[in-house]
Every structure is written in C-alpha cells, then in structure tokens.
C-alpha cells in the first residue's frame, strides 16, 4: 500500500474544485476553480488569509462541509473521486487513509468521553483490532507524541489535559491508522512556540518514516518553511501561486504573495523599513469581481487585470495567476 518512490501518480488530486455556501445574503463562493495535487511523501502547505478558502477546500474533500455548503469538481484520491462517494464509501477512507488534525485542540475532542475511548474507536473501526490491542496501540502512539505516563493519561478526560497536550492527543489520534494522507489544519496555531516546534517535528518524522503525505494549512509562514516542500498560496478562494518553498519564499511572482511575505516581521530587515501590510480587505465572497480578485489591493494593477489572469507556469513547476511576473 505504501510506496517508497516519489515519482508516481498523485495521491490526491483536486480538479476544478468549487465550494459554495448558501446564506440568507446569497451564495458565498468560498473556493473557486482550485487545482492542485499531492503525491505520497509530499508535504504541501496551503497558506493565505482567513477566509481564503483553505479550510473549506479540505473540508469539501473530506465531505465535512456545513449543511449549507456544496462542492463541485473532483477530489481524486487513489483514483476515486471523493466528492462522488456515498457516506459509507467515504467512511472507508476517512480516518484510515486520510486523517485530519483540526484547528482547535480545546474543542476537537469529545469532552464527554475518555481519551482511550476516542482513540481506540478509530483503530477498532478501521483495523478490526480488539479492545486491548487497540488500547495498547493507542498508548504507544501517545508515547510517540511524548505524552508522559500514557497508560494513566489515556484514562483521563480531555479537560484534564492542557491545550498543547490535547493537540498532541489529536495528532496521535490522526496517526493511529498510519494514514497515507494527513491533513493538518492550523495544528499549531493555538500552541506555545516550543510546542509548535515539537508538533511540527513530529509530523516531519511521520512523513519521513512512513511516507505519509501531509497537507498543512497555516498562516504561519515560519512553520511552513520548516516542514513543507511545496506551498500553495490562496486568495479569495483561488490559487494565486504554487511552487516549492524556495521558489515562493525567495522568488514570489504574485504581488499578493510578495505582500504576504513582506507582512511577516523579520529580524534581518532594517527596523526603519517597518512592517508592511497589504492595504484594503479581501473581496466580498458574495459578489466576486471578474478578472483578478486581488486587483483592488494590488500595487501593480492595470486595466489588463480586469480580464481573468491566466495561470503562468515556468519549467520549474512554479505557477502563478498574474499577468506579470513572467519576465523576472
């Protein structure tokens, strides 16, 4: 099942994904014509402001959209389209082959059940282990994420854990079935910097040991740089730039990416230069403008941006959606 080579068909391929939500005010276009793919052992980061559609992209793929949400397009996982699957078919993949680590460790665990019950149900359900085997496996996994005294802690309730500890439990839970794809939605945002490092290290180790593909959703560009190989930048539900960490960080082609990078505080920049921010707000997702979505905030915008800009691609698999940038 697991493959060791990196050059093969993508594990997950998102094609023309659109996600919308019906609201009393109208339809909110959360994700628009998104395309990307990830192979086994790859680490892809999705970055962008809140509301850029990062989370909804993966929610759509996992069939976890809110009731008023709907998705179209394709999300092909190992040759099958996740979006076309029935709930039962989807449940064969969720948790076993695709695991998800959610944003908020304080509320993502069931407060009414002991940790052991929440962990072993995954293994028992997907791997058919009996209760004792499952518990042993869960204890091991807790130990692997450095939870001290896991035999005792596993019998406790979530509220007896600190935020960082809970997030580790969630990570451990995600790793229980050794998934082929791990989706981590802001796994470290709520945590201390030191814990952030540990969690991110943990995921890196997992990828290296079992060739798991990781999709990391984050707006912490530091964590992204530390863990990921490729970066997808999203803006207003669209991919605006995609490439390796080096390409995107050191040679950003899209003005939005540049703005994003410049708004990160950096010690190696002279103080008088100050902290940059991108002026304006993201567009209203109810009424998206035609043409380039970033037009109104872009320092380099011109009349040509009223047309939808094409996706440009160089020979290094670096892509960006802008009429500019090709000549640099």
């Amino acid at each position: 099942m697991k493959s060791s080579t990196k050059s093969q068909a993508p594990l997950l391929e998102i094609k023309d994904l659109n996600v919308g939500f019906d609201t009393p005010e109208g339809e909110v276009h959360a994700v628009n014509n998104l395309n990307f793919s990830i192979k086994a052992g790859d680490t892809l980061a999705i970055v962008g402001e809140s509301g850029a559609g990062k989370t909804q992209t993966v929610m759509a793929a996992l069939g976890l959209l809110a009731e008023n949400g709907h998705a179209s397009g394709q999300a092909i996982f190992k040759g099958n389209d996740l979006l076309q699957m029935s709930a039962a078919e989807l449940n064969r993949h969720r948790g076993r082959e695709i695991a998800m680590i959610f944003q908020d460790p304080m509320t993502s665990l069931n407060p009414y059940l002991r940790i052991d019950k929440q962990m072993i149900e995954v293994v028992m359900h997907h791997q058919g282990l009996n209760k004792n085997q499952a518990r042993e496996h869960a204890v091991e996994m807790l130990r692997a994420v450095r939870i001290p005294d896991p035999e005792r802690r596993i019998r406790q309730y979530p509220h007896e854990f600190s935020g960082g500890m809970r997030q580790r439990v969630i990570v451990a839970m995600g790793l229980l079935c050794e998934p082929d794809l791990l989706i981590a939605d802001e796994p470290t945002t709520a945590l201390d910097v030191t814990v952030q490092g540990q969690i991110s290290h943990l995921m890196g180790a997992l990828r290296d040991n079992s060739n798991t593909a990781i999709i990391l959703i984050s707006h912490n560009l530091g964590v992204v740089a530390g863990l990921c190989e490729r970066v997808l930048v999203m803006y207003a539900g669209e991919a605006v730039e995609c490439g390796s960490v080096e390409q995107v960080y050191y040679d950003p082609r899209h003005p939005y990416t540049r703005g994003l990078l410049e708004s990160v505080p950096r010690l190696d920049r002279p103080e008088e230069q100050g902290l940059n921010s991108i002026p304006g707000n993201p567009p209203n997702l109810l009424t998206l403008p035609a043409g380039c979505k970033f037009r109104d905030r872009c320092p380099e915008a011109s009349d040509a941006c009223r047309e939808k800009p094409p996706m440009q691609l160089d020979d290094q698999r670096h892509a960006w959606r802008c009429i500019l940038g090709g000549d640099t």
């Binding site: 976890l64 993949h93 948790g95 998800m100 993502s108 069931n110």
Partner: peptide, 27 residues
C-alpha cells in the same frame, strides 16, 4: 452536531449512526 468534536468523529470515518449514538447523544 455543529460542534467541533462531532466533526472530529466524522473525520474518523465512523458511520453517522455511531457518531450520533456514541458522541452526540450524551451531550
């Protein structure tokens, strides 16, 4: 059913009836 831990339970691949009986019923 709108809470985060139910989303977690669904992401585990549990069937909806198990999600409801085991995770949602008590709260």
């Amino acid at each position: 059913l709108h809470s985060n831990f139910i989303r977690t339970a669904r992401a585990k691949g549990l069937s909806e009836s198990i999600v409801i009986r085991r995770h949602a019923l008590r709260p």
